[in-house]
Simulated assay, not measured.
Amino acid sequence: MTDTPAPADEVGPRAHPRRAPALWNIANVLTMVRLLLVPGFVLLMFAEGGHDPAWRSVAWAAFTVAMITDLFDGELARRHNLVTDFGKIADPIADKAIMGAALICLSALSDLPWWVTVVILVRELGITVLRFWVIRHGVIPASRGGKAKTLTQGVAVGMYILALTGPLATLRWWVMAVAVVLTVATGLDYVRQAVVLRRAGLAREADRGEGSR
C-alpha cells in the first residue's frame, strides 16, 4: 500500500509558514520600558538637589531595572523569533539613552569628571555610526571585550549613582577606570574591524565589476 501524497499546502515549508513577529511582543515591550524609565530616572537623580542618599538609591533601582531589561530583551527576541525592525532601531537607542542620561546626570552633579562622560559617549555614538558605515559590506559582531565593556560600564555607573563613601567610593573609581580602558580599547578594535571589513567589501565589489566586463 502506497502512501497518499499530502496536499501541496501541507508539505515542506508551506506546512508551517513562519509568521512575522508581532510589533508589541515581550522583547519590544521591555525595550519601551527601558526608554520610559529614562525621564523618570533623570528626575530621581536630581530630586532634593541630587545628593540625597534615599533618592539616589531609588534612582539606582531604576537604572538597575533598565540594565536588566537590556540583558533580557535581546535574548528573548533572538531565542523566540521576536526580532522586528522596530526592535533593531529602538534597542540600541534605549541602551544609549539610559547610559547617556546616567553619565550626563553624574557629571552635571559633579560626581563624575566630564571627560569620562565625553569619552564614553563619543565612543558609543562613534561605533554606532561606524556600524552603519560598513553595514552594506557586513556586520561587525559583538566581541567578548565589548560585552565586558558593557558590563563594567553598568557596574561602574551604578556604583556612582549610589551615595557611596569610604572604601566603596574608592573601589568605584577603579571600576570606572577599567570601564574607560575597555571603552577605548574595544572602540579602537571596532575601528580596525570596520576598516578591514570595508576593504574586503570594496575588493569583492571590484572583482565582481571586472568579472561582468
Rank of each mutant, 00 (worst) to 15 (best):
S57I: 12
A59Q: 04
A59Y: 03
W60L: 11
W60Q: 03
A62P: 05
A62E: 05
A62T: 08
T64E: 11
T64D: 07
T64M: 14
V65R: 08
V65A: 14
V65N: 07
A66N: 06
A66F: 01
M67I: 02
M67H: 00
I68P: 00
L71W: 11
L71P: 00
F72Q: 02
G74F: 00
G74D: 01
E75G: 01
L76Q: 01
R79W: 02
R79N: 06
H80L: 11
H80C: 05
L82W: 06
V83N: 03
V83S: 07
V83Q: 06
V83T: 08
T84R: 03
F86S: 05
F86G: 00
G87I: 00
K88P: 01
K88S: 06
K88E: 06
A90M: 11
A90I: 04
P92Q: 11
I93Y: 11
A94W: 00
D95L: 08
K96L: 07
A97G: 07
I98W: 01
I98E: 04
I98L: 10
I98D: 03
A101M: 06
A101H: 05
A101F: 00
A101W: 02
A102M: 08
L103V: 09
L103T: 06
I104D: 03
C105E: 02
L106Y: 05
L106P: 02
L106K: 02
S107T: 15
S107V: 10
S107I: 09
S107Y: 12
D111C: 05
L112R: 04
W114M: 15
W114V: 14
W115A: 13
V118Q: 12
V118P: 07
I120V: 13
V122Q: 14
V122T: 15
V122S: 15
L125D: 10
L125Q: 10
I127V: 13
V129H: 12
L130W: 03
F132I: 10
F132T: 10
I135S: 15
R136Q: 14
G138R: 10
V139R: 13
V139T: 15
I140C: 08
I140S: 07
I140G: 02
P141T: 11
P141I: 09
P141Q: 12
A142R: 09
A142F: 02
S143K: 14
S143H: 12
G145N: 10
A148I: 03
T150K: 00
T150A: 09
L151T: 13
L151G: 11
L151D: 05
T152Y: 02
T152Q: 06
T152D: 03
T152N: 01
T152S: 08
G154A: 11
A156S: 05
A156N: 04
Y160R: 02
I161E: 01
L164M: 14
L164D: 04
G166Y: 07
G166D: 13
G166I: 04
P167S: 12
L168W: 13
L168Y: 13
L168D: 08
L168N: 11
A169K: 09
A169V: 05
T170E: 14
L171T: 02
